[in-house]
Amino acid sequence: MIYVTEAIRIDEKELIESFVTSSGPGGQNVNKVASAVQLRFDVAANWTIPWDVKMRLARLAGRRMTSEGVLVIQAQRFRDQARNRADALERLVGLIREAVEPPKPRIATKPTKGSVRRRLAAKSHRSDLKRNRAEPDDE
């Protein structure tokens, strides 16, 4: 059992790992040893993750989340399989922990009087520049 938070936990049986040949470092073994890890986790089927966290997780995951709600993490940073497995699991837990934190609500603010004055002064200055560029009216 992997404890992400006090309320959220992942059973190892829910994780599906497949191993493929890595495109990264590996020397002579790069084409022979399947050191890259593809970790799949069915977020939609997990009952310990609340609905709002699942929605934030889907937004954070982006293209890594399939339409069926399966999160796919590819790890090929290291040369050996064990370190790539640990890296994939660490990234999964980090992503879920990031999704647990609710977004900070935006506080609406008004522009200061000075900033409004500076913006309008810059606009009138630009307007004067363009007006002076035009050919004078010959009446």
Rank of each mutant, 00 (worst) to 15 (best):
K123E: 04
N29A: 14
G114D: 13
L129M: 07
R56K: 10
G69K: 01
V70A: 06
L92S: 01
A45R: 09
N31A: 06
R126Y: 11
F41K: 03
T5Q: 03
N132L: 14
G27E: 03
I10Y: 01
A108D: 11
Q81V: 07
T109A: 15
V93E: 01
L60K: 13
A7S: 04
K32F: 09
R56M: 13
N84W: 13
T112C: 12
S35F: 09
L129E: 10
T66I: 04
I10R: 02
K32D: 01
E101V: 15
L89W: 00
E139A: 11
V70T: 08
Q74M: 14
E135G: 13
G114N: 13
T21H: 02
R118W: 03
S124D: 14
S35L: 12
Q81D: 09
I2E: 01
F19S: 05
V72N: 00
I16W: 04
M1V: 04
A88S: 09
I2L: 06
W47N: 08
N132K: 08
E68A: 06
S18C: 06
K13V: 00
E135A: 15
L129Y: 06
W51Q: 13
A86D: 06
R64W: 04
N84Q: 12
N46Y: 07
E135L: 11
L92Y: 03
E98H: 07
L57F: 10
S127G: 09
R126A: 14
T5R: 01
D128Q: 14
A86H: 02
A86M: 04
L57M: 12
V100D: 10
S127A: 13
G62V: 10
V72P: 01
L60C: 02
D137V: 14
I96R: 00
T66P: 08
F78R: 12
A82H: 08
D137I: 15
R77S: 12
A88L: 04
H125P: 08
I10P: 02
R56N: 14
A121C: 08
G26V: 13
L129H: 06
R106Y: 13
V93Y: 02
G27K: 07
Q38Y: 06
A44E: 09
A86G: 00
L129C: 07
R133T: 06
L39I: 03
V20A: 10
W47K: 09
I49Y: 05
P50D: 13
S18D: 06
P25N: 13
V43I: 10
K104V: 12
Y3T: 10
R133Y: 06
M65V: 03
N132G: 11
V43Y: 06
K13G: 00
E101C: 15
T5K: 02
S35V: 07
Y3L: 05
G94I: 02
M55C: 08
K13S: 01
A88C: 08
A34C: 05
A134K: 14
N46R: 09
V116E: 15
P136R: 15
R64G: 00
L120Y: 09
T5A: 04
R119P: 07
D137A: 12
M1R: 02
A108P: 03
V30I: 05
I16N: 06
G94N: 14
I73T: 05
V43F: 10
T5E: 07
S115I: 07
L57C: 10
E135T: 09
A99L: 07
V20C: 03
D11V: 00
K123C: 01
K130A: 15
